[in-house]
């Protein structure tokens, strides 16, 4: 037992230096040298240098003039990027159906003429609570509402959505998606 103590202590110290100090330091040095923007959080700046957000982290929108993102279960407020969290509501938990119903009602309150079924990703909470994307269907669902509030041509808005839609990566991986924050920023910049 004791004869193993010295190798164990020394091995732990040396491997800690190797894998806990040198390895992360090496990755950090590379990251900061070659991908400084990405390594520091993919931040969005305006011309004055004010930080408007991150392209990877969603923000809460509830004003009808904006596209709304996924529901967020972070606390104490949605899209709290210092405390990521999903809702963890089970499929048969009545609280899930209640929450979804509340979101549908909120959408329809500003858009009473829209009778189409609501795309599921628009009324369910994301896994991280920080999801920056919605599906193209969810964006399309909101176009008429926003066009009416902003008094612009819905077709122009659809073109803008199209230009903020990412397809499957390499044509295969993942799902088509729309970045809500950058889309809203682009909309504010135009109108």
């Amino acid at each position: 037992m004791l004869s193993n103590l010295k190798p164990a202590v020394m091995m732990l110290l040396l491997l800690t230096t190797l894998t806990g100090v040198i390895y992360p330091a090496l990755v950090t040095a590379f990251a900061q040298a070659f991908y400084p923007d990405k390594a520091n959080g993919s931040l969005i700046k305006d011309q004055q240098g004010t930080l408007l957000g991150s392209t990877l982290i969603g923000q809460p929108f509830s004003d009808p003039k904006y596209f709304w993102g996924r529901a967020s279960a972070t606390s104490p407020y949605p899209y709290n990027a210092a405390a990521s969290s999903g809702s963890n509501l089970g499929p048969t938990n009545p609280a899930l159906a209640d929450a979804v119903k509340g979101r549908i009602d909120a959408l329809q309150a500003f858009d009473p003429d829209n009778k189409t079924p609501v795309p599921v990703d628009l009324v369910t909470a994301s896994g991280s609570g920080l999801d920056p994307h919605i599906s193209p269907a969810s964006a399309d669902y909101q176009v008429n509402r926003i066009a009416k509030v902003r008094k612009i041509d819905p077709e122009k808005l659809r073109d803008l959505v199209q230009s903020h839609t990412e397809g499957r990566q390499w044509g295969v991986l993942g799902e088509p998606r729309v970045n809500v924050l950058t889309l809203n920023l682009a909309m504010d910049a135009i109108h």
């Binding site: 899930l96 990703d121 369910t124 994307h133 599906s135 269907a137 399309d140 088509p176």
Partner: peptide, 15 residues
């Protein structure tokens, strides 16, 4: 235009 299915607790980019 959408992944559909049980999206509660899932991310839009993964579906």
């Amino acid at each position: 235009q959408q992944p559909g299915g049980n999206m509660e607790g899932k991310e839009a980019r993964f579906g």
